[in-house]
Amino acid sequence: MTPLIRNTLLGLSLSLASMLAIAAPQISLTVAAEKEIVEVDDKGQQITRRVAATDTVPGDVLFYTIRYSNTGDETARNVQLDNPVPDATAYQANSAWGEGSDILFSIDGGKTFKKASSLTYQVTGADGQSENRQASPEQYNAIRWIIEEVAPGAEGSTGFSVLVQ
């Protein structure tokens, strides 16, 4: 084998190895916050529209939208988006959304997640007996979206809203 052929084969081998090494999923994320404002049009009708939120006051509802995309060249699997409910806010009932995802909630700061219908906590009654109670949305302090897979180049979005306390 001539040195030229040997070097060419070595170069091809390295390139192939390199291509194999970079084949991977890459999830990119953005999160945006919006709030609703009420305006009056020319006809005196009130129009509600959403605008980007940079500031807020207690009582506002904030709408968070999380956009994800797979910028890699391989399918991403078992994608979990975890989003603690921000401090000084309260999760709004039934506000979490996300196409093609399972939505779970946590009431223990993100240690465990369950579907809303399965979220319970124990209290001790006046008779000293423990009983399970259904967690209310205000108790949710983290949200998880589970997406089975995100193909290369695919994108999607999820979101939820909170009440500023």
């Binding site: 999923p25 999830i27 999380i66 399918t75 991403a76 994608v79 975890d82 989003n83 603690p84």
Partner: peptide, 9 residues
């Protein structure tokens, strides 16, 4: 508000 994504290949 901070969101974190974990995933596998």
């Amino acid at each position: 508000n901070t969101v974190t994504v974990n995933y596998t290949d």
